[in-house]
Amino acid sequence: MKDALLKLESVSCAYDGPTVVEGVSLEVRAGEFVAIAGPNGSGKTTLLRAASRAMAPRSGRVLLDGRDLYEETDAKSAARRLAVVPQDAVVEFDFLALEIVLMGRYPHLGRFDAETERDREAARQAMERTDTWELRDRPITELSGGERRRVLMARALAQEAQILLLDEPTSHLDIHFQVEILRLLKNHVDAGGASVAVMHDLNLAAAFASRVVLLQEGRVTGEGPPREMLVEEKLKSVFGPHLEVRAHPDGGPLVLPRIP
């Protein structure tokens, strides 16, 4: 079995009050697409923050390539291994989309280096893969939510990190781009990368993820292939009664809302 790229060892997190994430252990290997699912407030985003060097856990450890992410990894080398796509970014100043994507090259540049042809090429490829090259000289402030989202995705790709962490990568996107972005992640994973994504759309998780982690009140209540996790009984215990699971025509599970 391959070594874990990213490993959480009984991680607990809290802001000032009670713990939001409680004793979560998780391993992410190359070639894996892990979807984290759970109700609102179950600690998904906090878990992602802990895994992305944004919030040190109160107890437990996060290991990147076997080294402690907070104690033994500096910001730049972490950013070369691990790229994060946030839910959204509010940008007050009118940077062009291309300039935003080029910022993804920061961890590869020394303090006094200017961007080289190599950096511009990485930015261009990332933008072409997210279908944002056409937006390159538009100010980020003028883009729609979905366009901005794809630019942020391109920025993460420009980082050329093996591990991608995403907070609801499909929110703000129309159905075409939802599928496109997830396909992109799938390709990334198939090419030897790894992705961890917080996902609300369980059907997309079923279609793309190799593993689903169910989170409830900060604890992992189930972990396994989508087929085993996305079953009605399990989901109802996590999300409540307003859903039902049918068989998708393609064979997998199909989660539908049930209107009482």
């Binding site: 730049k76 950013a79 790229a83 994060v84 970014a89 920061y106 303090r111 920025r155």
Partner: peptide, 24 residues
Amino acid sequence: AIYARDLNMFLLGEESARHLGVEV
């Protein structure tokens, strides 16, 4: 001037800057 590029990163938010490798 030495920190001009870091300042650009701050415009995307502190957390984003951190994720891009800035020692915030």
